[in-house]
Simulated assay, not measured.
Amino acid sequence: MISFTSTQLTAWLATLIYPLARILALIASSPLLGNRQVPARVKIGLAFVLTLVIAPTLPAAPLPDPASARGLFVLGQQIVAGLMMGFSIRLIFSAIEMAGDIAGMQMGLGFANFFDPTNATFTPIIAQFLGILVALSFVALDLHLTMLAALADSFQAFPIGDSPLAAGAFLTVAEWGGSLFAFALQLSLPLIAALLATNLALGILTRSAPQLNIFAVGFPITLAVGFGALALVVPYIAPLLNHAFQQALETVGRFMLQLGGF
């Protein structure tokens, strides 16, 4: 007959609950896996499977009772670590959608909005197009598998424990977010430059021929130039996404090391 004590049961639960909290927080805040279209059962099931795979590889260490005050503190740490990892990667998607938003407004498509069920809001059509393109590139480049590998490595950089969180780690994530919004502006600059030149040419044309209906002629020309510039930019999105994602993983690695006090 198999018998075990309450202390052993608590230790077994602790080895599963703490990694599960970090993994669930990452899945909930990460792109694609954290979308509302993904059922909650799928998210929980995937997190549980990943926990069963990762938990045996963690270093053996005494863990506090999850029901104690110390255990709740450790549980909160794991949730914060997972949320910051997913948030750092989701910022890439937000930056590229921001670039599409800027480009769409310059093209005159600021009024063309579609309902985005993921964020429960209305999104400009160019931003939604780039968001779908980035999501497909994210899967095609196997970056979702790289994200899960970084999750497994995070338990080595920031092992489960009750050490206090370092405030400098959150500054690293904030700086990463600031650089990404600059990246979004740089991504939209080719379209902005092309449309600026088009608008200047249309302005000169209007001054030289006042009888010309600028609204009937300018809008189709602006759209054509905008879509042409967008077609030239699209092939470079996948390499830029891969580069940005590698930088995101480096940021996550530094964040985890700083959380661990290194």
Rank of each mutant, 00 (worst) to 15 (best):
Q77P: 00
A28W: 03
A67I: 13
I23Q: 05
A61I: 11
K43F: 03
F48W: 14
Q78A: 01
G34F: 07
I54S: 02
Y18F: 14
I44R: 04
F48P: 15
V49L: 15
D65C: 09
N35Q: 10
R36F: 00
A69L: 14
A47E: 13
L26N: 05
N35D: 12
Q37S: 09
P64M: 09
I54R: 03
A81G: 01
I54Q: 04
I79L: 10
V53N: 12
L63R: 10
P19G: 08
L13S: 09
A61D: 06
L20G: 11
W12D: 10
L72P: 02
G76R: 06
A40P: 01
I27K: 00
A40S: 13
Q78I: 01
I44Q: 08
V38A: 01
G45Q: 07
T15Y: 10
P39M: 06
S30W: 00
A28I: 05
P59Q: 14
T57S: 15
V53K: 06
L58S: 07
A28Q: 10
L72D: 02
P66K: 10
F48K: 11
P31H: 03
I79D: 00
D65S: 09
V53T: 11
V49S: 13
I54E: 01
R22D: 03
P39A: 04
P59I: 09
P62T: 15
V42D: 05
A28S: 13
S29V: 00
R70D: 15
V42E: 06
L16R: 14
A67G: 12
P62I: 13
L33K: 03
I54A: 04
A61W: 00
V53Y: 04
L20P: 00
S30H: 00
G71W: 08
L52H: 10
T51A: 04
S30M: 05
P19L: 02
L46P: 00
I27A: 06
A47V: 12
Q77Y: 06
I17F: 14
Q78E: 10
A47Y: 13
G76M: 10
R22K: 11
V80K: 02
D65F: 06
P39G: 02
A25R: 02
K43D: 10
K43Y: 05
I27L: 11
L32T: 15
P59A: 14
P64W: 09
G45K: 09
F73P: 01
V42Q: 02
V49K: 05
T15G: 14
I17H: 08
L33T: 12
V42Y: 07
V80F: 07
L32I: 15
A11F: 01
R22G: 03
A21D: 01
A47G: 15
Q37G: 09
I54T: 04
F48A: 15
G34K: 09
